[in-house]
Amino acid sequence: MKVIIKPAVFILSLLPFFALIYYGFTSQLTANPIEFITHYTGDWALYFLLITLAISPLRVITGSNAYTRFRRMLGLFAFFYAYLHFTTYFVLDQFFDFQAIIEDIVKRPYITVGFTAFVLLLPLAVTSTQKMIMRLGSRWRQLHSMIYPLTGLAILHYYWLVKADTRTPIMLGIIFTSLMILRHPWAKQIRNRVLPVRKKA
């Protein structure tokens, strides 16, 4: 059972990507495919960041370590979708127009914070191998705690780019805040009071 769960999560995480390709082949990318792909990959990058951040609270709530082994893979999928998102912007949207891209990054706050989030995500992806974990030791944890502020920036990025309806980014912001609260040691103490501690998952 254990053997197949990880590949199953892997395939599941790729489904949005396969769906996108399917939409492409069946002309379901709307009249403005580049905008659609940008939004779609941005959405999934953010979802995967939040899913990754949900692992620790899940551990606190269930008292089980069973999900922790997916965390690195889920984080890498967040990077995968963020990479597709950025590439879509860079190649399809701006078509390598460096001047326009730099102007966007400097002048448009939503791009500034989105770009910062992406730049912060890069070293996390690069140092996600077992070897790097060994090599960086305690600094690895420090480095990877970047995921919290960068997810905050990604939500700000979303909040700033919507034209009039901020309901979705606000909802995602509430989810993010809840996850941050739930991972706090206090949450664990409260849980241990309320629910009996299970020995093993």
């Binding site: 403005n32 326009a100 102007e103 780019l161 034209k163």
Partner: peptide
Amino acid sequence: HPRWSQRKER
């Protein structure tokens, strides 16, 4: 516009 450069269009 603060969010969209208006120099180009698709």
